[in-house]
Design a protein around this nucleic acid. Sequence first.
DNA 1: ATCTCATTTCGTTATTTAGCTAAATATACA
DNA 2: TGTATATTTAGCTAAATAACGAAATGAGAT
Lengths: 123, 123
Amino acid sequence: MEKTLTITKSLADGNRMRVIAALMEKEELCVCQIVEMLRLATATVSRHMSILQNARLVQSRKDGKWVYYRLAEPFPETLRIWLFESLSGSPEIQADRVLLESILECIPADLCRRQKKRKGCAC
Amino acid sequence: MEKTLTITKSLADGNRMRVIAALMEKEELCVCQIVEMLRLATATVSRHMSILQNARLVQSRKDGKWVYYRLAEPFPETLRIWLFESLSGSPEIQADRVLLESILECIPADLCRRQKKRKGCAC
DNA sequence: ATCTCATTTCGTTATTTAGCTAAATATACA
DNA sequence: TGTATATTTAGCTAAATAACGAAATGAGAT
């Protein structure tokens, strides 16, 4: 039961749920993209992703200084279906979807610079 | 997304997960039976059931002074399947299953009396 | 109406969790 | 090597949550 509980606990937070929903649509996101979407501190996002990774819901890969997260393989299929069904029609997830489109137009390096200085995107 | 989050939050507690698992096997349980299984105070169980009811995962009926809970109708089918799959093989749930068999041999009135006095079951 | 009993609600306490900043770590570059 | 940068970890604070006992509520019996 611990494993199940670890999963439900990791999904008992709105921001982590939003990340999962985003990763159900986009194959992979890097920390700074998630930071941009959630509008949280990098440290906070890192911690959230750690919880999701520990729950075996996401996995990560490093590309130099960049860390990318994607849904874990394997991801419980029935859980994914339930999430998809119950989140469909959610205005918050839809808002994230739109925001993510513009975020993905920036390359991560530019995003990070922007986050550091809180200035306009270089895109 | 609020509805989904309400559900994941309600399932982010071990005791509430145990109740759901029990109700997936037994059609209906009354408060005192749940109290006996979880080994918690009546007030605590009542509060847990209130959370599950608010999340639309369980529903209740009254029979005089007795309140019985069962899985809500409708209960998200894909969620149920995931829970069943991920909880199968859980030693804690299996232990509850065994304990519940003996609990169900007592009628609720006797259970309540026992809980009040912490003495032997009248069965 | 009064008393008994099962359950719920309320208030309190201890524990857990989400958010942040600062420090630490890992990677890249000059 | 030193500097810059992305991310993670550690520590702190405020908020949320689980457990309990007491009080309130509802149902049954006399």
